[in-house]
Simulated assay, not measured.
Amino acid sequence: MSTKTLGIALLGVGPGSEPHLQSLATLADSVDLRWALARSNPDKARAAVPPSTRVTADLQEILADPLVEAVIVATPAYTHLEIAAAALAAGKHTLVEKPLDVTLARAEELVGRATAHGVHLGVVLQHRFRPGAQRLKQLLDSGALGAVQSAVLQVPWWRSQEGYYAKAGRGTLARDGGGVLLTQAIHAIDLFRSLVRVRAVVASQIATTAIHTMETEDFASALLTLGNGAPGVLVATTAMYPGRAEVLELVCRHATATLEGGTLRVQYHDGRSEAVEGEAKSGSGDSIMDFSPDAHIALHRDFFGAVAEGRPPTVTGEEALATHRLIEQIVRQGKERAA
């Protein structure tokens, strides 16, 4: 990555900004957080950002600053298209929190805007940057594990009604765009898809359990055909008390690999084994930002490096769009099955 200090702006200083602010503090030698957009609670925003960061409710004031080369969009999902589109039109490289937006059509429009303006669009799907996940990708790409024979992804998370879904807009299509798949499990699904690819959704179920009162789903399951034709299974919920870390299990020709939270364990058929230890916390529970910022730091380094080096970031808009399309297909087929 270049040693040049990169001028950036953080658009949104709500709960979703917390790991970004922690990461940016770590990267302060190479990144200058010049602005923060706060359309409500400006005093709270000023307390959260460095003293040198200017806080404003005026997006155009930020975009008019020629020293701002990149922005991070950390506002609610339903605002992403309008805010990111303005930044892209101003020539700012844009890193957007997941999901791209609340509908597939809006997500596709956002990716199209980035292409039209010729600037980078990255998406905050940071699970790809955990050391265990990166080692698993290396092993798959090198052929050390052999061909994937089957894959199972479980996201057994917990969100309470009182502490999470009772808050305004949560679990609604208008604010979030979806339930457990698009809002919580999207990180694990994106990692899963990036590792094994998905050719088809064979069948799916979605439901809202009696545990929650919400518009969208808190349970989803799917039978999948992986990119190489092998079978796959996905189960995700926010109704499994008290919740535990997501688990990805790959049965391969020469080994079985298990990624639980951030920890990778590989057992080879010849008796060898290897492990990469990682964080157990992953976002389950009502304290939604109670996890290490390390993966955000790695994602930021990659995105800012992409800006400096003129290369695509690891998680492009197109990659995030492919994950959104998979989720949309699971939801659509689940609704059709229930009709």
Rank of each mutant, 00 (worst) to 15 (best):
S40Y: 09
K335L: 12
E61W: 02
P15G: 10
K98T: 01
L33I: 01
Q134K: 07
D43L: 08
K44Q: 11
A210L: 10
D294R: 14
A89R: 15
I62P: 06
A203V: 09
T263E: 04
T316M: 08
L145Q: 04
V119D: 04
K335W: 10
A185D: 06
L234W: 10
V49Y: 01
A38L: 00
Q333Y: 09
N41V: 07
I189L: 13
G317C: 02
D101Q: 11
G229C: 02
I297F: 05
D286W: 08
E108Q: 14
H127T: 13
L182H: 09
Q22L: 15
R175N: 15
T26V: 14
E336I: 12
E260V: 03
I62G: 02
S194P: 07
F303I: 04
A147S: 14
P42D: 00
V235H: 13
A174H: 09
M214P: 02
A338H: 11
P66S: 00
F291K: 02
S292L: 06
P19G: 05
A306I: 04
R301C: 11
G169I: 05
V266H: 03
T323S: 14
L136P: 01
P76K: 04
A275L: 08
T208K: 08
R244S: 14
Q329P: 01
T103S: 11
L173D: 08
K4V: 10
G262R: 08
A185T: 05
G112A: 10
P42C: 00
V148F: 07
S194H: 06
T258E: 08
Q149A: 11
E336G: 06
Q184I: 12
T5P: 14
Y165P: 01
A168Y: 12
D43K: 09
I8F: 07
E274W: 03
T103D: 06
K98A: 03
V111M: 00
A200E: 15
H117R: 12
A38Q: 04
K92T: 04
L173W: 14
V266Y: 01
G163A: 08
R197W: 12
H80V: 06
E108G: 00
F303G: 03
A133G: 08
D218M: 12
Q161L: 07
E108T: 13
G261L: 07
A47V: 01
R128Q: 13
A85E: 14
M1P: 09
S40M: 02
A322R: 12
T216H: 01
T3L: 11
A107T: 01
Q267A: 14
E109A: 15
G310S: 03
L37Q: 00
P131A: 02
V71E: 05
A207Y: 03
S194V: 10
V235N: 13
G7L: 03
C252N: 02
W35I: 06
K98S: 01
L110G: 04
T115Y: 02
L88H: 03
A220I: 09
G285N: 07
R135W: 00
L250K: 10
E97F: 10
V119E: 08
L264K: 04
P42W: 00
T75K: 00
V73M: 09
L140G: 07
E318K: 12
N41M: 05
R265E: 14
D32K: 08
G122I: 04
S23L: 02
H212L: 15
L95F: 13
A45V: 07
S40F: 07
L321D: 08
I8P: 06
A245W: 11
A89T: 15
G317W: 00
A116P: 06
M289V: 13
R337S: 12
P42S: 01
S142G: 10
S221K: 13
K281T: 12
E69A: 13
